[in-house]
Amino acid sequence: MGQGGKPRRAQAYDGELGAAVTRAQQGDEAAFAVAYRIVQPGLLGYLRGLVGEDAEDVASDAWLEIARDLGRFQGDGAGFRGWTATIARHRALDHLRRQRVRPRSAVLEADVLELPGPHSTHEQALESLSTARALELVRGLPRDQAEAVLLRVVVGLDGPAAARVLGKRPGAVRTAAHRGLKRLARELGVTDEARRTLGESK
């Protein structure tokens, strides 16, 4: 558990992840733990966006299935992200079906920060973004946009892989992610104008 901090961009680890998965498929449990540590942060973030506070439980279920079916998987590190995301999504949907609770209706923590005003500076908007606030914003999006954003940005999937996880066409997922990000930027007060002003002032 003691290794150094990981970069936020998931793709940077795909090579290492692919190697770890291959070794794990040959029976190396330490390699499976390595794959777990690379995949779990993004997977848990995605599940938080889907099922909220139950994300840890759903992730545990998903990992049981991943651990059981690892021998069936074929592909590289990026493919492993997609495969695991698909399993996690199925578990999350099963969970929601059992609960009959729509993902966005779950109550998030009450101490989320105030929405920054339209005149906030870019820095203020960024600094004020806690995890809870970010999750609230993402979960406030329409479901397809939220999932597209989470899979692309948080899990680190490319367009076709995210489309396969969602069972949709890549074009539809690309559009949904674009719209979702645009709306998030607007709600964060990060307008294009603010960006330009900041860029010039620096």
Binding site: R9, G45, R48, W63, T131, V149, V153, V154, G156
Partner: peptide, 17 residues
Amino acid sequence: ALIAAAVRQDVIDAEAE
């Protein structure tokens, strides 16, 4: 990057692992 950093759960729960 902002969203990824805020939403990703980078603290690994050793027990779950």
